[in-house]
């Protein structure tokens, strides 16, 4: 289970750490298991403390045009692009 989740999260976990991690995770999951005691029938999920209308922007070009800033911290770049190990599709 931990291996699959770590794969999904793209986190390399050393083989020898898997059992310990699995124990910790199941302890945490056991702890949160208490939630099942609560009757939540018909309760609308709470996704944000903010209850106002979504705020929007106008369709105006107000940003961009600074590729040097965008690339400033890139670990690897080439000719104005970010560069990554070759992706095979």
């Amino acid at each position: 289970m931990v291996r699959r989740i770590a794969g999904l999260a793209r986190i390399q976990v050393a083989e020898e750490k898997l059992p310990g991690l699995a124990r910790e995770l199941s302890a945490i999951l056991g702890f949160v298991e208490q939630l099942s005691e609560v009757d939540t029938q018909g309760v609308h999920p709470y996704t944000s403390p903010v209850e106002t209308q979504i705020k929007a922007r106008a369709d105006e070009v107000t940003d961009g045009g600074y590729p040097d800033d965008i690339l400033a911290n890139a670990p690897e770049k080439d000719d104005g692009y970010f560069a990554v190990p070759k992706v095979v599709e």
């Binding site: 289970m1 931990v2 989740i5 770590a6 794969g7 999904l8 999260a9 793209r10 986190i11 390399q12 976990v13 991690l21 910790e24 995770l25 945490i28 999951l29 990554v84 190990p85 070759k86 992706v87 095979v88």
Partner: peptide, 27 residues
């Protein structure tokens, strides 16, 4: 490859507690 680069980067870059929480959250 690219996925291994992600896994190595994130495996080395995140500490244990962060990894723990990311795994819980992903799960």
């Amino acid at each position: 490859d690219i996925d291994d680069m992600y896994a190595q980067t994130r495996g080395a870059g995140f500490g244990e507690e962060v990894q723990r929480r990311l795994l819980i959250g992903t799960y």
